[in-house]
């Protein structure tokens, strides 16, 4: 598969949240007023100013405590349902960059029905700005197109965040999986053949985050979601329609 990809090894993540801040820094994103609600996860969810969020999850399995960190972001699906949804309503509001495979929302996405776009995403990623466009991770396409790594990857101290050619990322992911499997029998890659952002987890993915794997959304069951993902999106065969 051509284009770029991420490999996110959650076993190396220390939740320093460098990525969460670096994303805001590069994208000049602001903040929302937050409160401590009994968790270190903040802001509580992705939002119009937060494209990358470290999710904290405390779980106990067989009396053993684990504290999982999940650096959530857009998966840049190979066949992005969000694009399909947006384009069902408005033209020229989303692109899937040919060279990288990055899925990028444009200004006109504000005309798309926000909730429907969000619910069409198997990972519950797209958000919108107040009276503004739909937003999410852009794969730092401006950085990547100029030979740099995305801000969240560059900032990562431990190698949890990786970026490169998708093929190389898949190879790296499989290599890490093979290394971890003996110690962690539940180790797995998440939806690796569907997305450009591949996570490695060592436990039931739901214990990390309810949307860690492609999952149910209102009105869409998992099968439908996957079917939609697998269907060639009409955006891919669209041609230029003029200025």
């Amino acid at each position: 598969m051509a284009g770029k990809g991420f490999f996110i090894d959650t076993t190396l993540c220390t939740a320093c949240r460098g990525c969460q801040v670096a994303c805001k820094n590069w994208n000049r994103n602001g903040t929302i007023p937050t409160k401590n609600t009994g968790s270190h996860q903040n802001p509580p969810d992705l939002d119009g100013n937060t494209f990358k969020l470290v999710r904290f999850s405390e779980v106990e399995t067989d009396g053993k405590l684990a504290w999982y960190f999940f650096a959530d972001q857009c998966r840049h699906c190979l066949v992005p349902p969000c694009k399909d949804t947006i384009e069902g309503y408005v033209d020229d509001a989303v692109i899937q960059d040919e060279a990288t495979g990055a899925v990028v929302f444009l200004e006109k996405s504000k005309e798309a029905p926000h909730e429907e776009v969000t619910s069409s995403c198997p990972y519950d990623i797209p958000r919108h700005r107040e009276n503004g466009p739909m937003v999410k991770c852009t794969m730092c396409i401006d950085r990547v197109s100029n030979g740099l790594k995305p801000a969240c990857v560059k900032v990562c101290p431990t190698g949890a965040m990786n970026f490169g050619e998708l093929d190389e990322m898949i190879a790296l992911a499989n290599e890490r999986l093979a290394k971890l499997k003996p110690k962690y029998p539940k180790a797995q890659l998440l939806d690796a053949d569907q997305v450009r952002v591949i996570y490695l987890v060592v436990d039931d993915p739901k214990k990390y985050h309810k949307n860690a794997v492609a999952s149910l959304n209102p009105g869409i069951d998992r099968k439908t979601a996957l079917r939609r993902m697998a269907r060639p999106a009409k955006g891919l065969i669209r041609t230029f329609v003029g200025v």
């Binding site: 960059d97 444009l106 200004e107 006109k108 669209r238 230029f240 329609v241």
Partner: peptide, 11 residues
């Protein structure tokens, strides 16, 4: 991202 809003299919 100032490219957005051009009304183009930038793909």
């Amino acid at each position: 991202l100032a490219l957005s809003g051009m009304g183009l299919d930038l793909s």
